[in-house]
Design a protein around this nucleic acid. Sequence first.
DNA 1: CCCTGATTCGC
DNA 2: GCGAATCAGG
Length: 190
Amino acid sequence: MSWTDERVELLKKMWGEGQSASQIAKELGGVTRNAVIGKVHRLGLSNRTSGASPAAKPAKEADKAQEPAKPAAARKSAAPQPEAEAPKPQPVTTTPARKQIIPAGQPLPPQPSANEIDPAALAKVNEVEKKAKKLSLMELTERTCKWPVGDPATEDFWFCGLPVQPGKPYCEAHVGVAFQPMSTRRDRRR
DNA sequence: CCCTGATTCGC
DNA sequence: GCGAATCAGG
């Protein structure tokens, strides 16, 4: 696969949206996250305060040339420094590769009726719901907690949206209540 | 172990 | 220019 214009654009878009390199790679297909990162760097866009290497600067800095002030009316293609999300005219051509990445086969959990659930886990959930990102269905990605909150029939319905536990469809707290392997307390009867 | 981005360097 | 391998951090 090569970096076609479209692919680069999607890369830029997703990177700008804060998507991780691996996610972008998955979306693009045919490339690894390394490829994505490499491209990102070559494109000049990088820094995105994220979970890694905040300012790792080995003492290998020789000189700093800087850009010699570019003419105002430069090209718009190469984005120098993507700032905040500004009014960005969206190419409303044909919705190219904008597929919705919706949790496919993941069965949503039935709302636990606070039954046989570990009280501690429950408390955690209640606590975590305050911090929930309250995502809509379409905002869910492969790494956002898909725990539904509220009544789907009302407006008070959203998905947790916190970072999922790797491999799981839910965040840590919700994994705790969703997957309760065995009885919290020994099986009494039987 | 899972993840993240950053860098290097042979191609 | 590209990206796997590696590195470094959470």
